[in-house]
Structure formats: structure tokens, C-alpha cells
């Protein structure tokens, strides 16, 4: 009974690696979608404005930059944190012992599930927009309202988790003599 319980445990290194791969794969998928949309001309549209001679002119616009402005701040901060924590452990030999440290499977499932839910919500803004009355950019702007705090929760909880379970916490404990 005790052995099977031990088997279920996951190391901190595995947890970081699995989380990093989840983020990298989803990042790749969303990035590909945005690049494909850019190439095909999703953000291209025409509008009419009056020129200097007070005559109406049809002008072409491309708001692809706004789509990238939406995507980058919603992915890069959390992705950087996770990938950096993962690579930092591998690069630093000192942390080898730390990587082998076992963590509760429930903790890993919670962070993996939270990350997956966030990335799924993020990609649904792009994938489900054809069924929305709003344009892609309008939907992106509106989604920022709930995606930003969501990402904040992920960064804070994951950051806290890595600190508590990682080397830094050990140093703090040693320093405080706990």
C-alpha cells in the first residue's frame, strides 16, 4: 500500500518539465494559428475616409499588430517563468538533489490543470471567434479583461510553488534557521 503510494509521487524536476512542455506545445499551436491568420489576411479590412480634397477614399488597413499585442503579454510572462524554472534546474548541477525531490501528485495535477485551462481559454478566443458576433480583434480586447487576472493567478501560484519547493526556500529556511 505504501509502495503504490510512493509510485504515484512525482519529482519536482518532472513536474517542471511536464508543465514546460504543456506551455511550449500550446504556445506553438497558438503561434501557428496567429501566423496562419496573418499570412491569409485575417486582420485585413477596408474603410472609407475623407481625403484632403474632401473626397471619399477607400483605404486598406491591417490590424495584425494588435493581435500580436494581445498574444505576447498573455503568454510570455508565464511561459518565461515556467521555462526558466525548468532550464535553471538542469543547468545548475547544485539543484540536482532538488529536482529529485518528490512532490504530491495532487499539487502537480492542480498546476497542470490550471495551466491547461488557461491555455485552452486563450486558444478558444481564436478558435471560437467565427461563432461570435464580435470581430476577432474585439473579442481579443474583451478577453484581456478576464485572461490577464487569470494569468496573474497562474504566475503567482506557480512562482510561489517553485520558490517553496525549490532551492530558494531551502536557502531561506537555512538562513532563518527553521
Amino acid at each position: 500500500m505504501k509502495r503504490s503510494h510512493m509510485k504515484k509521487k512525482i519529482t519536482l524536476g518532472e513536474c517542471k518539465s511536464k508543465l514546460a512542455w504543456l506551455w511550449l506545445i500550446m504556445f506553438g499551436i497558438i503561434l501557428s494559428l496567429l501566423i496562419a491568420q496573418n499570412i491569409v489576411g485575417k486582420y485585413y479590412y477596408k474603410s472609407m475616409i475623407k481625403d484632403q480634397y474632401n473626397e471619399w477614399q477607400v483605404i486598406s488597413n491591417n490590424d495584425a499588430v494588435q493581435a500580436w499585442e494581445w498574444f505576447v503579454p498573455l503568454v510570455i510572462p508565464a511561459l518565461s517563468l515556467i521555462v526558466a524554472a525548468w532550464r535553471f534546474d538542469i543547468w545548475r548541477k547544485k539543484t540536482k538533489r532538488n529536482r529529485k525531490k518528490a512532490i504530491k501528485p495532487g499539487e502537480f495535477r492542480f498546476f497542470w490543470g490550471l495551466s491547461f485551462l488557461y491555455l485552452l481559454t486563450l486558444s478558444s478566443v481564436i478558435l471560437l471567434h467565427p461563432f461570435s458576433q464580435l470581430s476577432q480583434l474585439e473579442l481579443m480586447k474583451q478577453s484581456q479583461v478576464w485572461l490577464m487576472p487569470f494569468q496573474g493567478v497562474i504566475i503567482t501560484s506557480l512562482g510561489g510553488f517553485f520558490v517553496i519547493r525549490g532551492e530558494i526556500w531551502e536557502s531561506i529556511k537555512k538562513f532563518l534557521g527553521i
Binding site: 496562419a36 491568420q37 491569409v40 489576411g41 485575417k42 486582420y43 471567434h129 467565427p130
Partner: peptide, 11 residues
């Protein structure tokens, strides 16, 4: 139709 709506311009 979905593919067109997802990638093409909404025109």
C-alpha cells in the same frame, strides 16, 4: 466554412 471564417478576412 469554419476554416474560411477562422483564417480568412471577415468580409
Amino acid at each position: 466554412e469554419y476554416g474560411k471564417a477562422l483564417f480568412g478576412p471577415d468580409v
